Amino acid sequence: MAKHIILLMSLVTLSFGLLAFAFEPSPLQDFCVADSTSSARVNGQPCKNPALVQASDFSFSGLHLPGNTSNPNGSKVTPVSVAQLPGLNTLGISMVRIDYAPWGINPPHTHPRATEILTVLEGSLQVGFVTSNPDNSLITKTLQKGDVFVFPVGLVHFQRNVGTGNAVAIAALSSQNPGVITIANAVFGSKPGISSDILAKAFQVDKSVVYQLQAKF
């Protein structure tokens, strides 16, 4: 019996270890500032020579500036990932500022490599995510200034400004490079385009509807 308990504990420990390594591994040094000039191809970014690292590698300015929401969605995402802040490399975290015009949306999208936690700085936001198949349950809530909401990794989610004024949110993500897949863009705007036969059958609509949507993206 004791051997069975030890074996079970070992399997549980191994499972948690594998789960941890399914995401970004812990850094093995103080920092690994991304070297954008390197031609090396690695999973992430190669490290800059530590002797050449400066404070500016760990700093980003500009999140106090409103984003331009003059677009069809009425929103603007200002990212601070490893591309904008090289010192984030290997640290497994990033952030964004999101500006919303009145009734603007951050359309349904996913982050394939990150969980997102969002807090409202100004305005009111309806937020939500959809659980995976087969339930596809919508989890949604209206947030006010100071409220916080979390979007689990990989799930389709969205935000909408439900106020009459501008809204602003800040979100943190559990990856230096979380990625973003906007559902409509990916499905109807892929290059080359997905066959209209496939999309018409998938969405149970006429091909003319598919052609119309593809033309928009």
Results as ranks from 00 to 15, higher is better:
Val187His: 01
Phe158Ile: 11
Val210Arg: 02
Leu138Phe: 13
Leu85Gln: 09
Leu88Tyr: 11
Leu91Tyr: 08
Lys191Phe: 07
Leu118Tyr: 11
Gln54Met: 10
Thr182Trp: 03
Ala34Gln: 01
Thr69Gly: 07
Gly193Glu: 13
Val150Asn: 14
Asn166Pro: 11
Asn133Val: 02
Gln29His: 02
Met95Phe: 14
Phe203Trp: 08
Gly163Val: 01
Gln84Val: 04
Gln45Cys: 12
Asn43Lys: 07
Phe60Gly: 03
Ala34Met: 03
Val168Ser: 12
Ser132Thr: 15
Asn68Ile: 04
Ala101Asn: 10
Leu173Val: 10
Pro66Ala: 08
Asn43Trp: 09
Lys207Asn: 02
Ile139Arg: 06
Gly179Glu: 12
His109Phe: 07
Leu199Met: 01
His64Cys: 03
Asn136Asp: 13
Pro72Gly: 08
Pro86Arg: 10
Val130Lys: 02
Ser190Gln: 09
Asp57Asn: 07
Lys48Asp: 06
Arg41Pro: 00
Ile170Gln: 04
Leu85Gly: 10
Ala172Gln: 07
Val210Asn: 00
Asp99Thr: 11
Ile98His: 03
Phe16Leu: 15
Asn177Gln: 13
Arg160Lys: 15
Cys47Trp: 04
Leu7Val: 11
Val127Ile: 00
Pro79Phe: 10
His109Glu: 14
Asp99Phe: 10
Gly128Gln: 09
Asn161Thr: 05
Pro27Asn: 11
Lys191Val: 15
Gly104Asn: 11
Pro102Ile: 04
Gly146Glu: 14
Ala186Glu: 07
Asp57Ser: 02
Gly67Lys: 08
Thr37Pro: 00
His64Val: 06
Ile139Gly: 06
Ser175Pro: 08
His111Ser: 01
Ala83Thr: 09
Tyr211Leu: 05
Ile181Ser: 13
Tyr211Phe: 08
Arg113Asn: 06
Glu122Leu: 09
His109Thr: 06
Glu24Thr: 05
Ala200Arg: 01
Lys207Cys: 00
Leu213Thr: 08
Asp206Val: 00
Leu118Thr: 14
Thr182Leu: 09
Ile194Arg: 04
Ile170Trp: 02
Ser81Cys: 06
Ser26Arg: 05
Arg41Val: 12
Phe149Val: 06
Val77Lys: 13
Gln212Gly: 02
Asn71Ala: 05
Leu85Lys: 09
Asn71Tyr: 07
Ser61Trp: 01
Val162Leu: 10
His157Leu: 04
Gly62Tyr: 12
Val12Leu: 15
Glu122His: 07
Pro112Thr: 12
Asp147Leu: 08
Gln176Asp: 15
Asn177Thr: 10
Ala114Leu: 12
Val156Lys: 09
